[in-house]
Design a protein around this nucleic acid. Structure first.
Lengths: 348, 348
DNA sequence: ATGAAAGCGCTAACAA
DNA sequence: TTGTTAGCGCTTTCAT
């Protein structure tokens, strides 16, 4: 085998491999691609493969992409990467996609619709093969965009009203059912709910789940709901204040997520209300460290890692077969009972 | 202006714009690129720009990349994306890079050296313009790799022994100084340290900072150090057990990060040791929620968002001017005093 | 089964 | 200042 020019090291191209193997570039291409390998004589294929390995050939994904229009690139769009719920979703999805040879682009797209579309368009220009959307609100322009451009896409964590795309979400109604059942079984009668923003499926569905569960127990008259402006500790506190001012008799509060529950904690502390002594609190998501705060938070556990993995799997299937039927995967949540819930004190 | 074929919508290419504007593609290219716009008659440039906007022209980054070897793609390598310290670093870096027209690829590369190099090679094949490395251990193959391949790269959060690359880190020695000073000022004499893994600069430097600070106060004889196997709550607990078994008289423990400190909490609880009553604890990083745990953790705050932003800035400069002098940015940490530290009880 | 040739969309020598 | 030309490295008809 002729030694390579030792002076300046250059990219090892397909043509180089082909020459070295004594075949034409197109043959080498066929030999290297498992899908087309059958078109070439086994002996020749072997030869090409050997030479490629020997030379340390690495196909150029950029050139391939330009030619084929595909890229083995997948984008995950999150509204706020510093929100730690996305971390396990990202790692679940990345892991899965990496093993399939995809490279993942994580884009922090914020919540401005125009900016979101802008970023998506830019990513599309890079020929991304598909999107995992963790951003979606109840009616979302990105969904229309993906549909319109025929880009494979999957929703994760949040869904949209018409469910026009495949999705992987947690069973939000069930989780609220579980939360309310737990409180009722402890003896609570007057239960409040801090709902998430209504434009998110999570806010909407959890609220509906709460109301239904309350109705099932014929407790509707005593129940109270406050909607938080967004999923933050601060807005959780604001909503909690309003809820408590309007409904001084609540003995338990179900928050639509853990951050909101922490806001509730803040208000309880500021008003010297004991938890769980005076008021029980339930969160949602089981985010990191809520087992260590005082009191350890009773909450709903969601397997976000699994969620990410499944969305990746779904997306890959859609990429490889665009006509595939839509799938809506619903994950089972679990109630984690810690120390923020207890039987209500008897009224004096 | 001739209307476009309304039947099938197709990608708007540079040639299309050029034709429509009545110039050659290369002229259109020059007009569109701010760097080369001066080469073309202002009137012509304007014309091209107008047509491009009208047609909704979007340059194809893949084709450009194939031609130029550059990509406006930057990769951030993290050892574990689900570790929440990286979230603010990522968002800081992403923000900054996005405004400069770069797209960010986040790769969760784990801690296996071979796998890391593999992923980096793959990314390089995609023509990424540079790397932000959040992975680096004291002597790291990725550093050699970047140097060898002449890829612009910046280290963030962690540095490497020889500092052959630019970096943005927190002043780890100073932070330990601050922690020890705080404890000494409270009256502590026997102080322990749970060190991070020695192969990370953070583990190494914080430990050295601890030792120096202790020496400064002439407390070396009483001090004790245990090295944790990795930065986790579990290993923090393991190290804490060993530390306490070997040194029953410590009245304060400085952990090399918050997760380790939480492990210390676990052990104190399991042994019925009061914090801060019997033993004070200090963490490092001020991660989310450590203000809400019981007791709220005294810790060192690092502006990770800023860290991400500065590393992005540095990288961009290196990309645009590869001969730029190396910079080692050192951020100032802050001591956040909460309720896990107090004066030691007098010995009976 | 293999080779020849064209071209994905863009940019950069070079020429005029 | 502008146009011509030649690729970047690969895949995919088409022809043999």
């Amino acid at each position: 085998m002729k030694p390579l020019d030792p002076v300046k090291k250059r990219r090892i191209t397909l043509k180089l491999v082909a020459d070295q193997a004594g075949v034409h570039a197109s043959t080498a291409s066929r030999a290297l691609n498992p899908a087309t390998r059958a078109m070439v004589l086994p002996s020749v294929a072997q030869k090409v493969l050997d030479v490629a390995r020997e030379l340390g050939y690495r196909p150029d994904p950029v050139a391939a992409s330009l030619r084929t229009g595909r890229s083995k690139l997948v984008a995950i769009l999150v509204p706020d990467i510093s929100n730690s719920v996305f971390a396990p979703i990202l790692s679940g999805a990345s892991e899965r996609l990496a093993t399939e040879g995809y490279t993942v682009i994580v884009a922090d797209v914020g919540s401005d619709k125009d900016k979101q579309l802008d970023i998506a368009t830019g990513l599309l220009a890079r020929r991304v093969d598909g999107f995992i959307l963790a951003t979606v609100s109840k009616d979302d322009p990105l969904v229309a965009f993906c549909l319109d451009q025929h880009v494979p896409a999957v929703l994760v964590n949040r869904a949209e009203a018409q469910s026009r795309l495949s999705s992987v979400v947690s069973d939000d109604e069930l989780s609220m059912q579980m939360a309310v059942d737990h409180l009722v079984s402890l003896g609570h009668i007057v239960i409040g709910h801090i709902a998430g923003p209504t434009q998110h499926s999570t806010g909407y569905l959890r609220r509906r789940g709460f109301s239904r569960a309350i109705a099932k127990h014929a407790l509707t008259e005593n129940a109270a709901v406050q909607v938080a402006k967004n999923y933050s500790r601060l807005e959780g506190a604001n909503a909690a204040r309003k809820l408590l001012d309007a409904n001084p008799h609540v003995t338990a509060i179900v928050a639509a997520n853990d951050l909101l529950a922490l806001g509730v904690y803040d208000v309880l502390r500021e008003r010297n209300i004991a938890c769980p002594g005076d008021i029980s609190v339930i969160g949602h998501n089981d985010m990191q460290l809520v087992d260590m705060i005082a009191p350890p938070l009773t909450t709903i556990h969601i397997n976000h890692h699994d969620m990410g993995q499944q969305s990746a799997e779904l997306l890959q299937q859609i990429i490889e077969n665009p006509n595939r039927a839509k799938h809506n995967v619903i994950l089972q949540p679990t109630l984690i009972v810690r120390a923020s819930t207890a039987a209500p004190l008897k009224k004096p």
